[in-house]
């Protein structure tokens, strides 16, 4: 182990890890917003909307995230859509994880007993009101864990944007492995930073789940 090398590279890698955090947060925000919309489509009374939601989930889950990133970044300009690598990466990752998160949200809503909706309706709540005030608060607790699993997968998935030259953690690791010829030192530093993010997030989700879903 070349400790001096590790000391020298840590600042650069922490910087790169911060880019990974930014990417994760941005695509998480986009992913949750799109996922909420897609889940609404999936739960709609209108068959065409249900189909649209199902098609979104099927297409984004049925094809590799890597190709989705390439399609947006390399193929986008052909149809008039042009983004910087970072933005293209964040958008593609967000749209991809949205398909998985939509299923987590839908699963949560469907796990709430039908009687809750029926009881709310019979008490005079409208359909939207029942969903908003009765069903969703109960469903939200059940979504914490599955959405957390999606978020952890997203953090690891951000490595894919190294392929379109976004200078995040994996890209930086690859460049340093190539230039220092010290693969294990580089891997050790990179792995520690990823594991702080991944297991830190896992711990946070466990806490949230125990705090809110405990009584369910």
């Amino acid at each position: 182990m070349d400790i001096a090398l590790i000391g020298r590279i840590v600042p650069v890698f922490v910087q790169a890890a911060w880019t990974t955090v930014e990417l994760s947060l941005l695509s998480l925000a986009l992913g949750l917003a799109v996922a909420a919309l897609v889940a609404m489509l999936r739960l709609s009374h209108v068959a065409a909307l249900r189909f649209a939601g199902a098609a979104y989930v099927s297409v984004f889950r049925g094809t590799p995230a890597l190709i989705q990133i390439f399609l947006l970044y390399f193929g986008g300009p052909q149809v008039g859509i042009q983004f910087e690598p970072f933005a293209a990466g964040a958008i593609a990752l967000g749209l991809n994880i949205a398909a998985y998160m939509a299923e987590s949200i839908r699963g949560g809503v469907l796990s709430v007993d039908r009687g809750q909706m029926e009881a709310a309706r019979s008490l005079g709540f409208g359909e939207g009101q029942s969903m908003r005030w009765i069903v969703l608060p109960q469903a939200a607790k059940l979504m914490i864990r599955p959405l957390g699993v999606n978020a952890v997968a997203l953090v690891k998935g951000t490595a894919l944007v190294a392929t379109i030259s976004v200078v995040e953690l994996t890209y930086t690791a690859q460049r340093f492995i190539g230039s220092t010829y010290k693969p294990f030192e580089i891997f050790a530093v990179t792995a520690v930073l990823y594991m702080i993010m991944v297991y830190g997030l896992t711990l946070l989700i466990d806490r949230l789940d125990r705090a809110y879903a405990g009584e369910a």
Binding site: K156, G157, T158, A159, L160, A162, T163, L169, T170, A173, Q174, I177, G178, Y181, K182, P183, F184, I186, F187, T190, A191, Y194, M195, V198, Y199
Partner: peptide, 21 residues
């Protein structure tokens, strides 16, 4: 270790890393 890190990083370690040792 392998659950906490991305596949792409593991691939780079095995392909670009092992050859250096």
């Amino acid at each position: 270790l392998f659950m906490g890190t991305p596949l792409l990083l593991q691939l780079f370690l095995i392909y670009f890393g092992l050859v250096q040792i």
